[in-house]
């Protein structure tokens, strides 16, 4: 598969912080077109800094980030990069610019110089893609957290990006809002948009094609969610926790019970446990 983003030997540190250590320390990562990549790590692991590298909000101290063949260090083509790689942030309140939903969504196309008719088309499409069309004349202030985030996603979609980076976009939401946003993310990925999801909720990582674990500015491991989830030691050492169903299965494995550990959610866990209980009963 073709790569949409290529990161090579990336180093970065904030000049004005006390800690001398690099925030990003020799990152090498290729993001493939159409894939769903998830980056997890605890707060301060460097994952949000990495996110800001992907659309040129930050530039590497050393190394390169290349989006569709354009380096983010190339000032002349920043707009092209940002048009290609959209970004949804953490705080829903701090990324909505206008007092009317549809005017906010129009902000991107307006900046790109789209004609009013084209902007209108894109805004309507983007709002229906996130199921927010009925709120187009509402004030964002009146929306729930999940709805605000979906408006923010629509604002990015209206630029027609090939890739969307979600920088902890679910961290401040309640469970309902989180579900809404994750459902939207999955839907967009199925429609062919490359997704980079940055989170510390491990349960959101299960739908990803690949999962990166970050710690101390380094990518420790990139693999399928299943392979990462079953690396219990790695997860514990990086200050993360498994989703509850996996925690239960791990606890059972630790007790010496032979159980299928290919488990993501409650249904899988139930099936695995039922299998063991059935075996126990038959013995």
């Amino acid at each position: 598969m073709e790569n949409i983003i290529e990161i090579k030997n990336l180093y970065f540190s904030y000049v004005d912080t006390d800690n001398n250590g690099a925030v990003l320390d020799n990152i090498n990562l290729d993001i493939k077109k159409g894939e769903f990549l998830c980056i997890v790590g605890h707060n301060g692991s460097g994952k949000s800094t990495l996110a800001k590298m992907l659309n040129g909000l930050l530039r590497p101290d050393k190394g390169t980030v290349c989006v569709n063949g354009i380096y983010t260090s190339d000032d002349k083509h920043l707009i092209d990069i940002r048009k290609t790689v959209g970004m949804v942030f953490q705080n829903p309140d701090n990324q909505i610019i206008a007092s009317v939903v549809e005017e906010d969504v129009a902000f991107g196309p307006e900046n790109l110089g789209c004609s009013p008719q084209e902007s209108r088309r894109r805004v309507d499409q983007a709002l229906s893609a996130v199921d927010m069309a009925e709120y187009k004349n509402t004030s964002p202030y009146k929306l729930s957290g999940g709805q605000k985030q979906r408006v923010a996603i629509a604002g990015v979609l209206a630029m027609r990006p090939q890739c969307i980076v979600f920088d902890e976009s679910t961290a401040m939401l309640d469970p309902k809002g989180r579900k809404e946003v994750i459902a939207t993310v999955n839907k967009l990925n199925k429609q062919g948009i490359t997704v980079v999801l940055i989170t510390h909720f491990m349960e959101e990582a299960r739908f990803a094609d690949r999962l990166c674990i970050m710690d101390n500015g380094k990518i420790l491991k990139t693999d399928t969610p299943y392979n990462i989830f079953s690396d219990y030691e790695l997860i514990e050492n990086t200050g993360l926790t498994l989703p509850e169903p996996m925690k239960l299965i791990k606890a059972l494995v630790d007790c010496g019970i032979k159980i299928d550990n290919k488990v993501f959610d409650e249904k899988d866990a139930c099936a695995a446990i039922a299998e063991v209980l059935k075996g126990g009963a038959e013995k």
Binding site: E244, L248, A251, C255, V276, L277, G280, E282, K283
Partner: peptide, 20 residues
């Protein structure tokens, strides 16, 4: 909780094995 669940399941597996 995970702890309670683990105990119940482990007990029932061991109990099941004993019964057999």
């Amino acid at each position: 909780t995970v702890d309670d669940a683990k105990k119940i399941i482990v007990d029932s597996i061991k109990g099941g094995a004993l019964n057999a």
